[in-house]
Structures are given as structure tokens and as C-alpha cells.
Amino acid sequence: MQKFFSNKKLIILMLIIIVTFGLLAVSVNIKDKKSTPPVVQQVGNDTVSIVGGIFAYPTNAVKNATSEFSDLYNTYTENRRLKAKIGDLAQNQARLKVVQEENKKLKEELKLNATLTDYSSVNASVLSRSPSSWQNYLTINRGQTSGLKKNMPVMSGKGLIGRIVEVDKISSKVELISTNNELNDKFAAEIQSTNKNITGVISKYDSDSGDLVMENVTSTKDIKKGQKVITSGLGGVTPRGLYIGKVSSVKKDNYGMTNSVYIVPAAEMRNFTVVTVIKSSVSGEE
């Protein structure tokens, strides 16, 4: 016995292995099961994020400036294209207002307080992105005190970019929709086609083309290129009607068994510094 424990290096190696797997197993379990990390970790992350804000604001300012410069470059062609759309938009806005009021009255009639389409939102600015190969996390400067909870969807400007995976007191982590992770939660989505809406699940990300892949589609008959894809609100975590992107193609998988719909994401994933967190009014079952 004495001889066995006399080798100091072996014992150190053994301890390192035990500590590594112990720490990792505990933190993976906490991440999967609890809605928030332990208080010590929350306070630590918040402290780091406050100091990080000092570095993030100038970076975001530069980022905004460069994106404004490239915007300026495209202004002329964009302006012509947008002018054509503007008449349409005004008409749609007027119609939307009427429909919203009508909807509100009808809901009151039916005594519906909140439906899948109701939500409120919180704006947050991005502090940093994880320098990691697979954890596609953004750190944002809002947390529990602003009413954020785990699994809330996050949008940036035009479309959906991901969902919250960890909430601290005044900061939180957002996992991007482009994460190719089998274990992460999927988004229930639907394609708005002419006849009926086709539902499915956005489950993968194709890194070659930068497209999102929608699987478990009910039928592919009516799917055409350019149709809009929104969240379906099924599952209860994500409200209905958040814009995800447009259909680019329908492909069969390698075995020819199932159909996958490829979607070009609407959110421009490069140049944004502010994100919007969507708080659903209807909460799903835990």
C-alpha cells in the first residue's frame, strides 16, 4: 500500500482526472437541468460582464460605423428598390392596424387573455462572442432583473438569431441558431404557403451554404422557393410569428427517405450590435 501511494506524480494525475470530470459533469448537469447557474457563478459572470461592457462599447461603436459605411455604399440601389415597396407598406400598415384592433375585440369577446402570437420584447446590446469553436454564444447585457428567462428566443433586426441558454442577474448568454448541436433545442417553424401552412422543426445548420435546415415537414407539395418561414408557436416556448427566413430549396436526405427544406436566414448575422429578446405571454409546460 505504501509503495502504491509513494508515487506522487501518479496521485497528481489521478486527482487531475477526477477533478476534471467531476467539474465537467456537475456543470453539464446544472446547465441542462437548472434554469440558472449557481449564484456564485452568476455574480462572477456579472462582474466580468460589467468590466467587459467598458471594452464592448467602443468595439460596438466601431462596428456600427463600419456597417454604416457599407450601408452608405449600397444606398443608391437599395433606395430605388425600397421606393417601389413603400406604397405597398403604407397600405399594409393601415390594414394591419385595422386587423389588430379587430383581433383585440374578438379576443375580448372570446375572453382570451394571451394567445401564441402575443409577446413583449427587451432590447439588449452584445458584449462579446465566445472565443470557442462550438459554443456559439453571445453575451448580452440584460439578465434576470430585466425579466429574462432561459429558452427565450432572440431576434436581431430582421429575423431570429437564437435563444437564451444561460441567465445571470444582469447578463445572459445567447446560443445562435447557426449552432450545429444535436443536443440543443430546436425551433418549431412553419412555412407560409398559399393553401395551408406547413409545419416542421428547424433542427440543423448547413455550414457550407449558411442555410438553416428544416426537417419533419408535414408535406412538401406546396413548398416553393421564396416562401416565408416563421416560428409556429408550437411547444409553447417561442411565440408564433417571429420571422426566420425564406425557403431556398427542398432536398431529399442521403437515403431519399425524408425531405429537408433549406432556409436562408433573414437575420444578417454579421453586422448587428443590438438584439431583441422576445418574452412570450403564453408560457409552455416545463
Binding site: G52, F55, V126, R129, P131, L138, S178
Partner: peptide
Amino acid sequence: ALLAFYLDGLMKWSFLNNMNTGDIIIVPQ
């Protein structure tokens, strides 16, 4: 060390931010 710590995240965020396309992942260290 702290400065380098924050720069890791900011570099990834500001110009190694290949979220939309590309297989290549560069991690600033």
C-alpha cells in the same frame, strides 16, 4: 491577462464572426 481575456471575446465578435457562412472556425487565443 485580463485585457487579453476580453480581447479574445471582442476579436471573435468583431471580425472573426463567421456566423452565416463558412466552415472555418478561427478561435483567437
